[in-house]
Computed example of a mutant assay.
Amino acid sequence: MRVLITGGAGFIGSHLAEACLEKGDEVYIIDDLSTGSLANIEPLRNSKRFKNRLFVHIDTILNHDLMEELTGICDIVFHLAAAVGVRYILDNPLKSIKINVQGTEEILEICTKFKKRVLIASSSEVYGKHLHAPLVETDNIIYGPSSKFRWSYAASKLMDEFTALAYYRTKGLQVVITRLFNTVGPRQTGAYGMVIPRFVTQALKNKPLTIYGDGTQSRTFTFVKDVVSALMGLMECEEAAGEVFNVGGTQEITILELAKKIIKAADSSSGYQLIPYEQAFARDFEDMQRRVPSIEKIRKAIGFEPQVNLDEILQQVIDYQKSIINRQLTINN
């Protein structure tokens, strides 16, 4: 099978590309490297096993002619390309909205033209400021004011969902929507506000872990390979077309508890520091106090269950970040 992955040089996209290659597929990647990195896919490009089955295009999904060419070649499309990370969204609000909304509509239109099944990666952010748990796919949406650009990402991803469902209902496009909850693992960077790689890097350097807010906000975390398994399973599930699915973990933890757990797991002498949101993000920021998914729907659809628990996730990230730090030390010496 020929698979197109937009955002394929990103954290999740590179793991998905690897899994598809392992399965024997031909994989076509398009990525503008705004948040992705060639380093994520370099081992795949250099692998003799995957020779002549991986094709990489460094370009924007807004390149209509290229997207038509790639979509026409491929059998299915995983649309993961998006502006991601709270800090990136706040620093690049206009670009983020354009990529997330215009880019997704472009993908949907082209997939409709070629009658190609497509999976749209949405986000748990679409739920907004709910305090209850677990969050169910049919829950109402609660956002802050438009003056808070933090919500522009959530609104843009919700617009993607509306547009995708409209294509399904009016044009029969076979589209699956996934709401991803805090995916974590090797290759993820803390540069755009991702909390676990940021905490782990600080802990390994014995620096204070910087906690934004009071640390009582809670999250669940999902190992990236579990997420990839879910995406591939949903793409193969005929009944998933026209539906929205949460993809996430089930172990809820506060950010303060997470920091303490990482310090212990990394055998670090770090402490932690509470930083008010207005100092960390300057303006336009509000946080989601609680983000815990119900996974009943995806469990019934494809039998999805997270296989890697939080302690194992943290160890994987710690080992990966240690290898990055050691590599940098070797280069500098």
Rank of each mutant, 00 (worst) to 15 (best):
V126F: 09
A164H: 01
I177P: 00
K157H: 05
F162C: 11
Q202K: 02
T210I: 15
T220A: 05
K116A: 06
L131Q: 13
T222P: 04
A164V: 00
M194L: 14
V228F: 08
A164P: 00
A240S: 12
A240M: 05
E161V: 07
A133R: 05
T201G: 13
T220S: 04
G193D: 05
R219H: 09
M235V: 13
P134D: 00
K129G: 09
L131C: 13
G213H: 03
V136T: 14
D139V: 07
E238G: 07
V175S: 07
S122W: 05
T163E: 08
L119H: 01
P186H: 04
E239M: 10
S146C: 14
D214E: 08
K207S: 09
L204Y: 07
T222K: 06
C111Y: 04
K207M: 12
R117K: 15
K171S: 11
F149I: 12
F162S: 10
N140V: 13
V200W: 05
S147F: 13
N182A: 14
P208K: 08
T183A: 12
S218R: 11
T210V: 15
P186D: 02
T138K: 08
A240P: 01
S147E: 15
E137L: 09
T201P: 04
A166Y: 08
K207Q: 15
I177G: 01
S152F: 11
A121E: 09
H132P: 08
D139F: 03
V195R: 02
T220W: 02
K171Y: 11
W151K: 05
L119W: 02
T222A: 05
A166M: 11
S146D: 15
V227G: 03
S146N: 15
F181L: 01
G215N: 12
V118Y: 06
L165Y: 00
V118I: 11
T170L: 14
V228Y: 02
D139A: 09
T220V: 11
A240Y: 01
I120H: 03
N140M: 15
T138L: 10
G213V: 05
Q174D: 12
L131Y: 13
G128K: 11
G128I: 11
M159A: 15
Y192P: 04
L135E: 01
F181P: 02
A241W: 02
Y192H: 12
